[in-house]
Design a protein around this nucleic acid. Structure first.
Lengths: 234, 234
DNA sequence: AATATAAGTGTTTAATTTACACTTAATAGA
DNA sequence: TCTATTAAGTGTAAATTAAACACTTATATT
């Protein structure tokens, strides 16, 4: 095939605007939350929206998503997962745009509150979201569905908790994700039997006089056990 | 925000070539197979490749994938699942292209062999694939990983079998997907206990003198049970 | 010193999963 | 027509895992 034909093959195709959107999850005490943004541009300026951006010519899709997350929360190295594409021809009245949605799990205590303010953003409880523009509501629903499934067989919940956390906190998190109560004793038994948590000598006394011991997720131990065939499953 | 600024927002962004690629799975007796194609255009003309196409301006991503599948196999309404995007800047030496990979499950007995021939395509056992161009090997690996996970909790295996199939066939399929032997009695017990198969009065005698009863997957019964909270899981 | 509160702990029962071997139906060939 | 062959079909016991459930402990507050 000649170079001219090659050129024709690639150039005969139509280029399209590609964006990424981020569903940013946080966890606060006992509530799963999303970070939403007041949209600055038309159409729908002033309405609540996920944060997103066009993919630029010099970056890959995950790079674009990381860039957006860093710009909006100040965090790099957050847990980020691609969810899927949204490409209805009419999804954005502003232009034909294919968006590749991602969900991110961030630690509420670590992100830069100041950036949230400059972006006119706000954390909303997942159960009490405002109306969202475009297909962003569909995206958030799919994100929670994916998060739920994934959290069942991968230890990603820890990405939503501070580095040091208590078992009651961890249980509240999983209860929020699955939307159902778990038995305290059975939960502890199961999670501790996996031997992926390091118990610290500190207690967190913010919730009780007695205080609850703090733990830390041990990534190395987890990967070691995973290599040996252990399956995280809650 | 003025319409001029709006224009600038959308037009300031760079458009990109978007493609879809399809990992087409089939199942033959006891072997999981992929349909691969001899690439017709440079670069890498003549080498083995997944089938793909650019997303056209008048179609969505799933529409593009369905179009490609119909063109290459003659089948519409095949099981099709989006897998994720591939967007490394250097992934295609021909041009910067973002590809959204999909996997499809098709019935080997139904697709049009003739189309396979006109496309210079061939079915390869998954365990014995030729070298593939670009990042297509990575795509196939991710596709199998996704298929394996999905098959565990959704009854998608049936998409790879003829409409009527025997339990030994079904077991061979799951053994091929999970790459491990299953106990015949336990497998039957489990799958039959779900009550999603309709037993027919016919036998398939191609594999034994005795013959094995044919069954049919009952989509309606499945959806009914799912609604009531039943969980498919193998 | 008494009180209040959430954290922490074990055991019994039920359900599920695993391991395992013989019988049956039907054709092919003697 | 009888015998041999072959894959299909079937049940039970043991082991593992999940579920249900209530009292004790540590510590700050009054």
């Amino acid at each position: 095939m000649s170079s001219a034909t090659l050129k024709k093959y690639y150039e005969g195709a139509e280029k399209i605007l590609v964006a990424i959107d981020c569903i940013i999850f946080g966890f606060d005490k006992e509530t799963l939350k999303l970070l939403l943004f007041k949209r600055k541009i038309a159409p729908f300026a002033g309405e609540w929206s996920l944060i997103g951006s066009f993919v630029q010519s010099g970056e890959s899709v995950p790079e674009a998503a990381q860039r957006v997350l860093e710009e909006s929360t100040g965090l790099n190295n957050v847990y980020l997962e691609e969810m899927g594409s949204y490409s209805d021809l009419q999804r954005d009245p502003g232009s034909r745009v294919i968006s590749i949605a991602h969900y991110a799990l961030i630690r509420l205590d670590e992100h830069k509150q100041q950036l949230v303010e400059t972006h006119q953003a706000r954390w909303f409880p997942y159960d009490d979201l405002p109306d969202l523009i475009l297909d962003h509501q569909e995206m958030t629903q799919n994100a929670l569905a994916k998060l739920r499934r994934k959290a069942r067989y991968q230890p990603i919940g820890f990405e939503l908790l501070p580095e040091k956390f208590t078992l009651p906190q961890l249980q509240l998190l999983y209860q929020a994700i699955y939307q159902k109560k778990l038995d305290r004793r059975n939960f502890r038994k199961k999670i501790l039997s996996m031997k992926i948590l390091e118990k610290l000598d500190e207690k967190d006394k913010t919730n009780s006089r007695k205080g609850a011991f703090l733990y830390r997720f041990d990534e190395k131990k987890y990967q070691e056990l995973e290599r040996k065939g252990m399956n995280f499953e809650l």
